[in-house]
Amino acid sequence: MKKQIITATLALGAILLGTNNVKAQNHTATTTVNIILSDVISIDAGSVANGGIVDFNYVTAADYNSTKTVNVPESLIVTSTKNFDVKVKADGASFTDGTNNIPVNVLNIKAATGGSMAGTQNTIELSTTDQVLIGNAPLGSALTLDLDYEILAAKSSSADILGKPAGTYTQTVTYTATAL
């Protein structure tokens, strides 16, 4: 066993040091190296703002009388070779259970502290109109944005939410990334 460990260690050393032992050759050759850069923008599919679900549960009286915030770290992870912005919109005017509706403007979305994505950060009241969540964010790789989803007590204790039949009310929220 000891012999095997020594053999493996020597092999590892040879791998790591091997590049130093390459003998210089007397031939010369020139190679043209082209680096072709294209603009690209990407959204990380591992992030929650990508087919993900954010749930608010209202079960007790206290739930309805308090502001609820759901923090979603790394909601968006963007890589962009140019400055960019992120907008957000709801795809419909209401959260719906199929029959009953809750207006989408009960929900606020804001950038939470902690992410690496800079730019002008806004708090928006959700609507079907595109609104700027992050404006003119500097380019970068794997930039993270942590989001707070918030429903104020004033909304949850109002007829917008209070008194609605029990059920799951859903709506789609779309994040749009575009170059500056």
Binding site: N50, F95, T172
Partner: peptide, 30 residues
């Protein structure tokens, strides 16, 4: 715009009661 279309899986994995927000992404190409 290239807009992500939700799958049935996206629509059905929400919680049993409350508000469910299904989040999707979209690229805007100038």
């Amino acid at each position: 715009f290239f807009t992500q279309l939700p799958t049935q899986e996206d629509k059905t994995t929400s919680s049993s009661t409350g508000l469910g927000i299904i989040t999707l992404f979209e690229f805007g190409l100038h």
